[in-house]
Design a protein around this nucleic acid. Structure first.
Lengths: 138, 138
DNA sequence: AGCAGATACTTGATTGTGCAACAGTTGACT
DNA sequence: AGTCAACTGTTGCACAATCAAGTATCTGCT
């Protein structure tokens, strides 16, 4: 808990102050950028970023208002709306990504060796569950 | 981030549903219970639980409303108000503590060996800026 | 003594999030 | 065809947490 608080506080203040992005918003932009078509279903975004569907709806509203993402309908399924990374969104991500990654590097590298980071990552990975039987909640 | 989300979601839903406590509220009760006089300054509580001073004020208001903690003035310094664990608060803590600790034990023990937990704890400790001795004695 | 700055705490406004409830869509099974 | 459960997404309400600003008190310095 302490480590999480320390790291997220540092990282989110950097993103917030320098680029006006919350960390979860950065995460969304990042996830979208990794898709071939730069698009994802809102529900999948919600699960990956670990916030509720309503949370995603509202975050995407904000990101649309600032022009970083857009909407796209799904031809196969009228229920789903894709979130799409716009050019402005891609630009924004490229803008803040270096500073963010450098900060991660600094926070970790200052205190842990390469192997330690490796083993920490492995251990934490085994504690993380993305596919959870008990509902993510809403 | 994933590990944190998984663990806190599990633990906080258990505490919330079974005992009507948020995890940070549990933390406060726990910290108070470890003091000899069952009392702490609000500011110290705030730092240890890692929420803002105003957050602590409001949380303690809630906990007072349900009778789990009380106030006590400080003789030496008129600025500070101690938060004191009441008997009801102590009872509540004893009530939910076993289930909470068992859940921690289950979540960790199911996936990590004794030594792995040990080294994870050491690594995370070095990433945390706060020197909180989280010795879950007993 | 008196002032300046730090410290402890509270309050008002704002924000992000979750839950419950809802509408629309899909797919499966009669 | 018709029905029903499951799924995607949105909205109203509630709530906890934050920041900024304010009050009160303490401490150190001249």
């Amino acid at each position: 808990m302490g480590a999480h608080a320390t790291l997220t506080r540092q990282l989110s203040t950097l993103l917030e102050e320098q680029y006006g992005l919350a960390m979860s918003e950065y995460e969304v932009l990042f996830l979208l950028s990794r898709q071939d078509d730069h698009a994802m279903r809102r529900i999948d975004l919600s699960r990956e970023v670990r916030i509720s569907p309503s949370g995603i709806t509202r975050m995407l509203d904000r990101l649309e208002a600032t022009g970083l993402v857009g909407k796209k309908a799904c031809a196969k399924d009228a229920r789903v709306t894709y979130a799409v990374l716009t050019d402005a969104g891609m630009k924004k991500l490229r803008e803040c990504s270096p500073a963010h990654l450098a900060e991660v590097e600094r926070l970790m590298g200052e205190r842990l060796s390469e192997e330690e980071i490796e083993s920490l990552s492995a251990l934490l990975g085994r504690l993380s569950d993305l596919d959870d039987d008990c509902s993510i909640g809403d």
